[in-house]
């Protein structure tokens, strides 16, 4: 099956998540090709997982003060700080029959594309179940997946640059989360591409693009007007307090 690849774009959090959901719907209706997209976040944002509590996970007052958007994803998983210029995010949206039926296996399959991209930069990484990629035991990428009407959406981030103190001033990371990892500090859990290799964020994007597309039939494409219209409509829901604060 032919893929469409949408090159790196920059949007706010609400538009980014709305585009992913719009594509999920259109692809499930067979109106759009399976799609891989890359994007960044402007302004910076915090996204929380579908089942998380915004109040528990995020220092919302600080985010408001600093102009950082707060958004709930439709996918599960954990809270992520998407610093402006600090990461490249990918989405893979395709009929679920193109991947393993098992969710855990399909995480591994899609994460292998990220691993391949990082390898293009000379960074050796490995899949760390359930949904992470690590370099020397430190997380460099996390992903989250949902499936609707026979279509899979997996989006994930690859950390390019990292301001640990900023990240952990915005995220409320509980001591329970690290209790079984035998580490002293949350700061020891995370690394980024810039700490591994002296490359630009566009070089990271190029490496990921190559990693994701080396074994597929694809064309570079753009979002259609219909997809953009759908996304604009959905973005309002993602901005709503009702959605973002419901847990």
């Amino acid at each position: 099956m032919k893929w469409r690849v949408i090159g790196i774009e920059e949007h706010d959090a609400f538009t980014n998540m709305a585009i992913d959901e719009a594509l999920l719907s259109r692809i499930s209706e067979k109106e759009s090709h399976p799609t891989i997209r890359f994007y960044t976040w402007n302004p910076g944002a915090v996204s929380i997982g579908r089942f998380q509590s915004m109040r528990d996970e995020v220092n919302v007052d600080l985010c408001i003060k600093q102009g950082i958007d707060c958004i709930r994803r439709i996918t599960g998983g954990g809270a992520v700080y998407h610093a402006q210029g600090g990461e490249v995010t990918y989405s893979v949206i395709a009929p679920e029959k193109m991947f393993s039926k098992g969710i855990r296996e399909s995480y591994k399959e899609i994460c292998s594309l990220v691993i391949s991209g990082l390898k293009n930069l000379g960074i050796d990484s490995k899949f760390a179940p359930i949904n992470d990629i690590i370099v020397n035991s430190k997380k460099i990428s996390g992903s989250a997946q949902t499936r609707r009407q026979g279509t899979l959406l997996q989006h994930g981030t690859v950390l390019y640059d990292l301001n640990v103190s900023e990240m952990f001033s915005i995220l409320n990371v509980s001591k329970e989360k690290i209790s079984d990892k035998q580490i002293k500090s949350v700061e020891e859990r995370v690394t980024c591409v810039k700490s591994q290799k002296n490359v630009s964020i566009m070089e990271l994007y190029d490496a990921l693009l190559m990693g994701f597309t080396s074994d597929i039939d694809f064309t570079m494409g753009k979002l259609t007007k219909q997809e953009l219209d759908d996304a604009e409509e959905l973005a309002d829901s993602y901005r709503s307090r009702e959605w973002n604060m419901f847990r």
């Binding site: 089942f51 528990d56 996918t75 599960g76 969710i103 989250a144 949902t146 989360k177 847990r247």
Partner: peptide
């Protein structure tokens, strides 16, 4: 009862 966390539930409405 309200359950929250960074887990995954499929379908999501199942929680």
């Amino acid at each position: 009862v309200e359950i929250t966390g960074d887990f995954f539930v499929h379908p999501e409405d199942g929680l």
